[in-house]
Design a protein around this nucleic acid. Structure first.
Lengths: 275, 275
DNA sequence: TAGTGGTCTAGACCACCGT
DNA sequence: CGGTGGTCTAGACCACTAA
C-alpha cells in the first residue's frame, strides 16, 4: 500500500463512515492482488451513491472540496475519480456551477444513443434537428421469450413490458422497433403515458421509473423486409433493412432494456466513429 | 493568462525552441479569445512532432521528465497532455518502460477498426481469433471518381490507388470491399506487395507508406446484393448486405483512405458500443 | 539498481457562474 | 463577491521494467 495512507494521521478524521471505509479498504488492499488506487476506490463510492439514488439525475453533487473532506483524501484524488466518471458520461462538470448527475433530459445529450442521420447532413453535423414524429403501435405486458429473457438476464416467462413503435423523420418512416423492459421496474408504463410524454423515452424512464440508461451495446445486421415490415416502413417487400439490436445497461452494468429495431436506410444512415 | 507563466523565471530556460514557443504563445494568448491552457499547447507540440515523423509509430518518445524540461513546464502539465493523446489512441503508455507512438502492428490493437464479429462470440468477447483469409481481387492505379474525390478531399480525376478484396472468416466470405487511397502517398503499392504482406493493411500503410490511420468515420446502410456481389459473398441475389463506408484520417485530420465494404451478416454482425 | 510511468498531496491562482 | 471547477506547480513515494 502507499505508506502515506497508513502513516498519514487522517488529515480530517471526519467521523464519516465512508472516510473510514476508504482508509480501511486501502490498508487491506495493501499487498492484495486486487489492489486498486485510492481514486478508483473513491470512484466506486461515488458510483455507489449514484446507484443508490443518493444523488439523482440532474442534481448537483457535493463540491470536490466537500467530497475530499468527506472521504479524507486530497481534492486532486477526488478530481481524478470525478474525471473518469465524467468521461464515462455518468457525471457532468460545469465550470463555476458544480458537478451534476447526467440526465437524458439535457438538451445537449438528447437522443445520445440514436445514431441515425439523414444522408443530406454534413459530415461533421449534429444529428436530428429534423422533425421527429413517434407512433406507439403497442404497449403491453407480456411474458419474456427465451431470447428476450436471456438477453435481459431474467427467466423465460417472467413479466416484461413490450413497446412497439414507429419513428418518422421528416414524415418518412425510418425506425420500427420493439422495446422490452424488465417487469418489476416498469410496472405502470401505459400507452397513454407514452403518448402524452414529450422528450426521449430514456428521459421518461429516468423521471418516472428510476432507471437511467448509462451505456449500451448494439449488434447490427442487414435483413430483408417482411411483408408487414415493408408496409410499415413504406419500402418494397424484401428490401434491405438495417437490424439494430440494442442492450442498454443501467448503473452497475444491470441490463435494463432490450431493443430490436429495423431501420429504413433509403435516405438515412447509421453513423459511427472509430477511435 | 496565468500570471505564473509571465512572472515565472522560466525554471529551466533550456535554449530549446519549443520551450520558447510555448512561453511566447502562452503570453500572447493571455486575453485572446482563443486561449488554450498550457497542457493543450504542449499537446499540440507533441502532435506536431508525431505528424512530422520526429517520433515514428512503435518508437519510444522522450520521458515525461525529459519533455517537461524541454518545454519548460512541470511534469504534471506534460502528463495531462500525454494523457489526452493516449486516450485518443495516438500514444501508448507502458508503466516502467515509457511512452510509445501507437502503431497498428501491436498485437493488442490489430484490426482495431474492424467491427465484424461472429454471432457465436460471447457478448464481452474479444473479436477475431478466428482464422482470416484475404483475397486481393484487384490493385490498380486509376482516376478518382467525383464521389471518391469529394470524400478524400482531392480533385476528380486525380490519381488514386484502388484495391478490391475479399475477406473470409472461417472459410466464409464475409467482407467484399473497395479501398481508395490518394495517389501521391501510395505510389508503389502493388498486388504482389499486398499478397506477400502478413498483418493488417494499416500496418503495411504505416511501415511502407508513412501513413498512420488515426481515426475513422463510418456510415452504415442496408442494401440488396447485386448478382455479382451475391456471387462473391455466396449469398442469394437481392439478399440484404450491410454497406459500410469508411473514411479514415491520418494525423491532422487528413483524409487518407476511403473504403466501401459489403458485409455478409448471415453469421456475423457489426458490433458497437454506445456511451 | 536506475529509470519510467502511476498515484497522492498541498497549495496557488485562474476562469466562470450566480448572487 | 464567494464558491465552483480548471490549470499549474513541486515534491514525495509506489509499481513496474529492464539491465
Amino acid at each position: 500500500m502507499h505508506d502515506m495512507m497508513a502513516s498519514r494521521p487522517a488529515p480530517n478524521p471526519a467521523p464519516d463512515l465512508q472516510a473510514v471505509n476508504v482508509s480501511e479498504s486501502a490498508s487491506k488492499l495493501a499487498s492484495s492482488p486486487s489492489f486498486s488506487p485510492l481514486y478508483r476506490q473513491i470512484k466506486g463510492l461515488i458510483t455507489r451513491s449514484l446507484q443508490q439514488g443518493d444523488w439523482k439525475p440532474g442534481e448537483l453533487i457535493p463540491s470536490e472540496a466537500d467530497l475530499a473532506r468527506r472521504f479524507g483524501v486530497s481534492q486532486g484524488t477526488v478530481r481524478k475519480a470525478v474525471d473518469e466518471l465524467a468521461a464515462e458520461g455518468l457525471l457532468l462538470r460545469r465550470q463555476g456551477r458544480g458537478t451534476f448527475v447526467s440526465t437524458h433530459h439535457e438538451e445537449r445529450v438528447k437522443f445520445r444513443f440514436l445514431r441515425i442521420v439523414p444522408d443530406a447532413a454534413a459530415d461533421g453535423a449534429r444529428p436530428l434537428p429534423q422533425p421527429m414524429e413517434r407512433q406507439f403501435l403497442e404497449c403491453k405486458r407480456t411474458r419474456a421469450s427465451q431470447e428476450v429473457a436471456r438477453t435481459l438476464g431474467i427467466k423465460a416467462g417472467e413479466s416484461v413490458t413490450q413497446i412497439r413503435r414507429l419513428l418518422l423523420l421528416a414524415g418518412e418512416p425510418v425506425v420500427y422497433e420493439d422495446i422490452y423492459l424488465p417487469g418489476p421496474a416498469f410496472r405502470g408504463l401505459t400507452a397513454e403515458r407514452l403518448e402524452s410524454y414529450r422528450g426521449p423515452l430514456y428521459a421518461l424512464f429516468e423521471s418516472e421509473f428510476s432507471t437511467r440508461m448509462v451505456r449500451a451495446e448494439e449488434k447490427l445486421r442487414a435483413v430483408n423486409a417482411s411483408a408487414q415490415e415493408a408496409q410499415l416502413l413504406r419500402v418494397r417487400e424484401a428490401e434491405a433493412l438495417l437490424l439494430v439490436e440494442r442492450l442498454s445497461f443501467s448503473y452497475g452494468e444491470l441490463p435494463a432494456e432490450y431493443r430490436r429495431g429495423l431501420y429504413n436506410t433509403r435516405h438515412h444512415h447509421y453513423r459511427n466513429e472509430l477511435n
